[in-house]
Design a protein around this nucleic acid. Sequence first.
DNA 1: CGACCCATTGAGAGCATTCAACGCGTGTGG
DNA 2: CCACACGCGTTGAATGCTCTCAATGGGTCG
Lengths: 251, 251
Amino acid sequence: MTSGGKSYTRDPDGLSCLSCQVKCLCLTAGLPLKEMAELNDIVRPAVTLDKHETFATQGAAFDSLYAVRTGSLKQVVVTGSDEHLVTALWLPGELIGLDAISQKVHPGSLVALENTTVCEIPYYKLDELCGRSAEVRRRIQCCLSQEMHDERLSLHLLLHRTAEVRLACFLMDISERFRLRGYSPHHFRLAMSRRDIASYLGLTPETVGRMLVKYQQENLLFSRRCEFRILDPERMKRLADASGRRQRLCS
Amino acid sequence: MTSGGKSYTRDPDGLSCLSCQVKCLCLTAGLPLKEMAELNDIVRPAVTLDKHETFATQGAAFDSLYAVRTGSLKQVVVTGSDEHLVTALWLPGELIGLDAISQKVHPGSLVALENTTVCEIPYYKLDELCGRSAEVRRRIQCCLSQEMHDERLSLHLLLHRTAEVRLACFLMDISERFRLRGYSPHHFRLAMSRRDIASYLGLTPETVGRMLVKYQQENLLFSRRCEFRILDPERMKRLADASGRRQRLCS
DNA sequence: CGACCCATTGAGAGCATTCAACGCGTGTGG
DNA sequence: CCACACGCGTTGAATGCTCTCAATGGGTCG
């Protein structure tokens, strides 16, 4: 299945960016009304995806960015040795495809974790708009720079962390992202399987399960299937912010 | 020490981009002559840094990108719990500061690993040039996108790897980067301490040392202090490309 | 020459993986 | 409508990798 081979269901009414719930977080964030309107003109009507639907295959040509309107998606990269790695997770208001601009090819498959809608932003039109608007140009560069920074820091941190702390970091990250989107930070649905979470964190599904049980025993967290409830946010945050493996002294 | 508090030695002759050894890799790569000349006009004369000199402190205001002309640098991030993390490494022709654009602040300290020269590219001038030149605009976006992609993939891979494979991945990455720069890919100097390498890879210096000894015993690599010599590139590459921990079956 | 940092080596402990087995829920086909 | 297969999640036991801690030697800089 290639990205051009299928026509997706599109929202006929094409809800505008101006009325979008997540406009404050999306590409439109902080833009003046004029630029927001121009951006709105180039955004195509939202695409509807079913749970588990792949809408861009690894290696497929890149020609659009996508903004998540509702639902969530993961990026899956298949390595040379046939490993399946989950390398990214997107929630409403987040921008998909920034890592494909350089090579003009999607570095991984994009898979909906649940029923999901995404707005398509044709890249050549966005680039043209960048030429006309310094605001939009800066906004794009900020998105790119911010995401690079966040990933660099959090992944380098994870490399030094035990499974217990890794998972806590992950959950607090998700929690914060939900909070920013106006959802409850302490009670959310995360449509990732244990296997997906494990792959994303560089652990095994068994270890992820065991850690969730441990949190439960310590009254830190309640989890069942996709439902997560952070019972003690303070202690959970302390756990996530705790330094490296064991209690090594700082040099 | 703040970034504005010290005046650095600058190359008075200000070698131009046009004659630079690494122009094919730097920001200038692939640009038409006209754009390269315009870029050259905004680049300030190269700054000379001594070994171990810090030339931007974590939290310092960001107002310029830097391109490495000769030498190498690391980024060091101090976390809330006083850990020192090495989160990036730059070689000649690479661009420093892309992760600071969004927040207008350097997320980590920039430290020269050896005697080093860097070209300063004032960001506000570059941004202005982006408005005038679609070529430069795309070039910057490509740098940002490529770096995000590379880090996302390689760090997620590292999360799943044993120390032995992690270090092999790192060395092959460095090797490839030297090769692209016209240096020997099999015999290079890497001015990072064992501690720096360990921090970068999420390991301990002891483990890094033990793995280097192991490579040595297997006639894969010779290393002494900063000198690295890859004796069996083929096997080293196979080791780096080997899948996750142990020989787990692919699902 | 001495202090200090870095690199190396050894021993022991701890943590995450591997492998195996089981229960559960879902979706499919009879 | 039910039986069944399948994938997912859970639990247990054992292996082994990497960390921690400690001690030593070598290099560098004052």
